[in-house]
Amino acid sequence: MFKSCSDQSASSRGTRPSNTACCSDLRESHTCSALSRNRRCPPRADSGISSWLPPDSYKYLAWYNIEQHDIQGSQLHCPRIRKGPSEEWLLSRQMGCILAPKNRVLEKNKWEMWLQENWEDCKQLNISFQDLGDPYQLENFNRILRRLIRVETLWLVDNSLVDLSAIRLPSCRVLNMSKNYFTSFKQLPKIPQIQHLSLAENHIETLAGLSSLRYTPLETLILKRNPCEFHQNYRKQ
């Protein structure tokens, strides 16, 4: 399934891959070099398999931390929310207990990181296809949504979202949440200024709760490929 280090180095000398292929090759080559240093991988405690998968040690690695790459931030077309948990947090989850962190981040550093993100001034944002498989990633995703107080156009397509009722988007006018797992309008975020809302390919079974959008300036609502399409008087309601 994985190429050897020698095969990758030989193929890399022959042709120059594209940006997408370069990223995958970098990850594989970086993983391959790591495997060559550590021939035996420790068993994984929170999974049903007996050993680590090759890319497991890079699950939470940011793109700019990968060694020997020439990718720039402007070449990333779909950023991902991939901030990983600390080693102490992972260890406490595996051990089933809460351990005190060894290195506490200063409040000043936290404030500087908070200012650098600057989600409050964002007006157009596409954070689709996030593949939020870990609760830690989902928590960080919701933290960003709570800071989007000025966003007007937001795309959250195919993120396996279930419930955003605790989120408020006061300035959002265009919201695309297609291909998620919403089952009711009550699970939607608070969107008092919404004009165009897409909920295509979700699991909304009834139109109960649709009245929550009655006092909004809603112009278009897309509900195609939802179970509620098969109800009587669907379009009239």
Rank of each mutant, 00 (worst) to 15 (best):
Thr206Pro: 00
Cys228Ser: 15
Gln193Phe: 04
His231Met: 14
Thr206Asn: 04
Glu112Asp: 12
Tyr64Leu: 02
Leu35Gln: 12
His196Gly: 00
Phe129Lys: 08
Arg39Leu: 11
Glu88Lys: 01
Leu53Gly: 02
Trp114Cys: 02
Cys172Arg: 01
Leu156Ser: 02
Thr153Leu: 07
Asn180Leu: 07
Leu218Trp: 07
Asp70Thr: 04
Lys224Glu: 10
Glu139Asn: 07
Arg143Thr: 07
Asp134Gly: 01
Arg82Leu: 03
Pro54His: 14
Asn176Ser: 06
Asn19Val: 02
Asn140Trp: 05
Ile98Ser: 07
Tyr58Lys: 08
Phe141Trp: 15
Ser12Lys: 12
Ser212Leu: 08
Gln124Ala: 02
Asn19Phe: 05
Ile127Phe: 01
Arg39Val: 04
Ser50Phe: 15
Tyr181Lys: 14
Arg173Met: 09
Thr20Asn: 09
Leu145Trp: 07
Asn38Glu: 11
Ile222Gln: 12
Arg173Val: 02
Ser128Leu: 06
Arg146Tyr: 09
Gln75Leu: 03
Leu161Thr: 05
Leu61Met: 14
Ser160Gln: 15
Pro217Gly: 05
Ser24Pro: 00
Cys22Asn: 11
Arg168Gln: 09
Asn126Ile: 02
Ser178Leu: 02
Thr20Ser: 08
Tyr234Asp: 01
Asp121Leu: 06
Glu120Cys: 05
Cys172Glu: 08
Ala208Trp: 07
Pro135Trp: 10
Thr206Val: 06
Arg214Ile: 06
Leu76Trp: 15
Tyr64Thr: 01
Pro42Tyr: 14
Ser178Arg: 13
Asn118Lys: 13
Thr220Gln: 11
Gln94Val: 08
Tyr234Cys: 04
Glu28Ala: 10
Gly14Phe: 12
Asn38Met: 06
Thr206Asp: 03
Lys186Trp: 09
Gly14Cys: 06
Thr216Val: 06
Tyr60Ser: 10
Arg40Cys: 03
Phe182Met: 08
Pro227Trp: 15
Asp131Asn: 11
Thr183Lys: 15
Val105Thr: 14
Lys110Arg: 14
Ser4Met: 04
